[in-house]
Design a protein around this nucleic acid. Structure first.
Lengths: 135, 135
DNA sequence: GGAAATTGGTACAAAATTAAATCACCTCAA
DNA sequence: TTGAGGTGATTTAATTTTGTACCAATTTCC
């Protein structure tokens, strides 16, 4: 349960996530957005400001700017200046954006779910609980 | 337990990993290697060929080439042509490489461990078991 | 034995990502 | 007020990562 184990758990988890990502990204691309763009888009409703997005996704602010710009150009997102603080840009998902998010997350769920399927329903709930404690 | 949940579990896990990575990468940089380089180095003993590394880490072959080259230049790795298959380059971690790997993984374990510390010992074991089933 | 197809690996150019600097705006103490 | 310090977001320039094309060694199959 010492340092060795934490690193082991880490690697297992990391390799798992990466392998799922790379298996779905071709399908996600066909929706007209990049995998990372999907992650950004999926968090916009919960975190409607670029700085918040950067913090929760652990990515630099300029990177968020680029993704937001692309998402806006694709019509998945609208940007408007926040009335109460003119520095802030409030983001809003368009109906098209919501649709593509749902599809993309469904693809991800399908791929990840096929791994999750190795676990029983109660194990899945257990896993979710553990991850929530860690978050 | 449907698609929605898989996506939720996914996001929790993804954000967790990314936040841990970004919190340790400054410390890892001080060891003289990049975070991704550490991940590569840490897998060399288990997967001593570039193509294998690319597959297990889900990264493109050219990327592995670049990292291997840097790790070799830094003296953490040696490359020799495999006697039984002259196309393959067998990689070998040097003592310096082993040392820096241990330190880097310790840093990672420390950071991840401080999250894991929120779980009881039996919960940690539970988590590891679940992740192993998924891998 | 010897083309043809495969596999491991790399070089180079293009694309993605990021660090550093900058601009616009906000807050608040004097 | 005002101007000093701080925050949100973007631009620019540099770095990192990757796709494409390629070579060299090996295997396959006639």
């Amino acid at each position: 349960m010492s340092k060795i184990d934490a690193a082991k758990i880490w690697s297992l988890n990391y390799n798992l996530l990466m392998s799922v990502i790379s298996s779905v990204s071709p399908d996600i691309s066909e929706l007209g957005l990049d995998t990372k763009e999907l992650f950004v888009l999926a968090q916009v409703e919960e975190h409607p400001y670029p700085a918040e997005l950067a913090a929760t996704l652990s990515m630099p602010k300029p990177t968020v700017t680029v993704y937001v710009k692309r998402l806006e150009a694709a019509g998945f997102l609208r940007r408007e200046i926040d009335a109460s603080d003119l520095r802030r840009h409030r983001l809003q998902v368009t109906p098209a954006g919501r649709k593509v998010t749902a599809r993309g997350m469904a693809l991800l769920s399908e791929a990840f779910g096929s791994r999750l399927g190795r676990l029983s329903a109660s194990e899945q709930a257990e896993l979710r609980g553990l991850l929530e404690k860690l978050s």
